[in-house]
Design a protein around this nucleic acid. Structure first.
Lengths: 200, 200
DNA sequence: GTCTATACCTGGATAGAC
DNA sequence: GTCTATCCAGGTATAGAC
């Protein structure tokens, strides 16, 4: 449908602009001109800027959820899935160097604005956290799965922030190797037989 | 001097507001009313908003530099100084939970704005980086001192970001213990394995 | 559904009285 | 050094023609 198409274009353009310029700094004019529609037409789809933000976050939640579900349904060891997570830093290195992590920077910005959609944006973090927690549980870490999930999430956030500040790709690669070695050390402590025993 | 006093008050108020609300979201009116002066008077001291940002960054650079110099001139081993750095997360936990890290969030915001003062803001990171590098060198890590400095800086950035998103103080404390253990493993001359150093 | 026109406000910035 | 008054640009948001 043509209706859905324009709306989707708006959300997609807003998504990119919120990431590259930040939510506050992005104006309706910016989005409108990116989609090649007039500002007036804009309000046919969204009545306020907050509504667009809401739609953008919902889109990101859906996309992220789909990606994680795909990794989870694929064959392979939990450690491989965690490695897929770590490698996001490599796959998205160019944009991360320019704009940081889309999840972290939005969360940080909305926190300072004390924005109503703050919690919804943080649900993106929760999505990753719960997914990682499941993978670590599968690795046999029953009691500390959440701590490990938060630790890895935290590491990747720090890498994104500094890679952005210093525009340093080699730093990303170095830290990714570091994180993979850390993951390796975790799996060595819990051999396959043991983690299989913990498997539900 | 009365002149310096008002100017200093402006910079101080701007410093706090830029931290708690972000640079973009903070208006002249916000700062003026915080200092209890009129907006007009404002321009006697600063001609543009960029000039205020510049002054704020200079203030932060001076304050941070003084703090690091003090730690460096004090008696004690390099490891103790690095622990002082790590413990910033504990000391500032309340504000970090609310607003994140002042260095990281400003750097992130200015990157998205593509602001002219970006590099100057990142000099704050460089200040910490160089200081940490010196401490790690003193610990005997001649070749990888910079990697270790970046690693620790990165870890603390990640902790600040997630502590802010989840408003989680226990997470800060847990990760601080984690970092101290990691530091401890570095100071040992022959750690059991490389990977064990990265795990609690 | 899409446009133009426009109202309204806030923010940055200036002029000039005191 | 501090104020009030004011200008202008840009942003959000609405009304209504097509």
């Amino acid at each position: 449908m043509a209706t859905l198409k324009t709306r989707d274009h708006i959300v997609e353009a807003a998504d990119q602009l919120f990431y590259s310029q930040g939510y506050t700094h992005t104006s309706f004019s910016n989005i409108a001109s990116a989609v090649n529609i007039s500002r007036g037409n804009f309000y046919y789809y969204f009545k306020t800027k907050d509504e667009i933000l809401d739609a953008v976050i919902k889109l990101r939640l859906a996309d992220t959820g789909a990606q994680l579900a795909q990794w989870e349904s694929a064959d392979g060891h939990a450690a491989d899935r965690i490695r897929s997570f770590i490698n996001i830093l490599i796959a998205n290195r160019t944009k991360i160097k320019q704009y940081g992590c889309p999840v972290g920077t939005l969360s940080t910005e909305l926190a300072k604005l004390n924005h109503a959609s703050q919690d919804q944006a943080n649900a993106l973090f929760t999505l990753f956290r719960a997914w990682l927690r499941r993978q670590f549980t599968l690795l046999g870490h029953k009691t500390d799965a959440d701590e490990l999930a938060m630790h890895l999430l935290s590491r990747s956030q720090g890498v994104a922030t500094l890679a952005n500040a210093f525009n340093d790709e080699e730093f990303i690669r170095h830290e990714v190797r570091h994180m993979c070695a850390w993951l390796e050390s975790l799996t060595k402590k819990t051999p396959l037989t043991e983690s299989s025993a913990h498997h539900v």
